[in-house]
């Protein structure tokens, strides 16, 4: 049992140990590699002098604001398109024309319109988060048991009440799956924007460390970004299990 639990850790630990030993024996001098001990030392130093926590706050703020705006837009459009088939058909060409634009291509547009800072990043993250939310909400709403809609008609619920009392609760498990995927995308897009151009947050931090030829700090940032991504994913999966149990599993492979 204890072996089973340790097995996933075996490979990374062995690799790190081998690399550490190799770096020690060859007296590694490099701009791109650093032994694990140096990486952990740099990580602790950057955590205690608050440069990584500040950068994390900036990145997460931009990512979550964009996620909130993007998923609100995607959710409302998804519900509207899911309920009304004619509306969905009318908007089809428009949506299919805008959706394939890679989110990062908006970067220069937002750059001249909004300048550097949170706003441009939030806009790009929001754009990227709209689509998974829209597509999965639409199919979730369309997949609602038709008899529930009949009930709402029999009860003569108004449109707003029908959405609040029937549509959203029935589609919620799959909407949450879409939200989880969007959250992952939001973090990826935020870091990408920072690496490409925006001088705030973790992405800018790792670029700066690279330009300063601090391989240890750069890899420390990389490790930290990995930990953040992993933790976010874990948190959302736990929340999904807790809130919806097996109900959400059906929507995992749209």
């Amino acid at each position: 049992m204890s072996l089973d639990r340790a097995r996933p850790l075996l490979l990374p630990l062995t690799l790190m140990l081998a690399f550490e030993l190799w770096a020690r024996f060859t007296h590694l001098q490099s701009d791109s590699l650093a032994p694990p001990s140096a990486i952990f030392a740099a990580l602790t130093a950057a955590l205690t002098d608050l440069s990584i926590p500040t950068a994390t706050r900036d990145t997460l703020f931009a990512a979550f604001s964009g996620l909130a705006i993007g998923s609100a837009i995607g959710l409302s459009l998804g519900i509207a398109f899911g309920i009304s088939r004619p509306l969905d058909r009318l908007m089809e060409v428009t949506v299919e024309a805008i959706r394939p634009i890679p989110s990062i291509a908006l970067l220069p547009i937002t750059l001249i319109a909004l300048g550097f800072g949170y706003r441009m990043e939030i806009v790009i993250v929001a754009f990227a988060c709209i689509w998974p939310m829209l597509i999965m909400t639409r199919s979730a709403v369309r997949g609602i048991e038709p008899r529930l809609m009949e009930v709402s008609r029999a009860l003569r619920l108004g449109a707003a009440q029908r959405i609040a009392k029937i549509v959203i609760p029935a589609a919620l498990p799959r909407i949450f799956v879409a939200f989880r995927l969007s959250a992952g995308i939001a973090l990826i897009v935020a870091v990408t924007v920072e690496i490409a151009i925006n001088p705030i947050g973790l992405g800018a931090g790792i670029m700066l460390a690279q330009q300063a030829l601090r391989a240890d700090l750069m890899l420390a940032y990389l490790l930290w970004i990995g930990v953040i991504g992993y933790a976010l994913n874990l948190l959302l999966i736990a929340a999904q299990r807790r809130l919806f149990g097996r109900a959400a599993l059906t929507g995992d492979n749209p």
Binding site: I188, V191, I195, A209, L222, G229
Partner: peptide, 15 residues
């Protein structure tokens, strides 16, 4: 490694 934003590898690749 999967949830890691892949663009974070760019600085390492540049170095």
């Amino acid at each position: 490694l999967r949830p890691l934003p892949v663009s974070a590898i760019i600085p390492v690749a540049i170095a």
